[in-house]
């Protein structure tokens, strides 16, 4: 393969690919933040435990629902 062939291939590639606009059109921070929120904020186990415990208490003592709602 000659140097001339090399130059031809290189020139053909440059001519075949359109020049790219490399300027970013919009701020990507909102999209990054959404992705972080989806992946970074799982519900901790103790929150689930509290929800389960509360549901059990209300099941056996339904009148406590009114007391709970009053204090809310």
């Amino acid at each position: 393969m000659t140097e001339h062939d090399d130059r031809e291939i290189r020139e053909a590639l440059k001519q075949s690919f359109p020049a790219m606009n490399t300027e970013l059109r919009r701020d990507l921070w909102p999209a990054v933040l959404r992705k972080l929120d989806v992946h970074v904020a799982p519900v901790p186990w103790y929150d689930w435990a509290l929800i389960g415990l509360s549901a059990t208490v209300f099941l056996f003592f339904p009148q406590l629902i009114l007391v709970f709602a009053y204090h809310l």
Binding site: F17, P18, M20, N21, T22, E23, L24, R25, R26, D27, L28, W29, A31, V32, K35
Partner: peptide, 25 residues
Amino acid sequence: FQGDIYAWIVRIVRDPGIAEDLTVE
């Protein structure tokens, strides 16, 4: 740095929409 990262990626993948997605990633 988002502009520089995007500019680098779009040079490789040659598609602005895909380059934006990859920049976020």
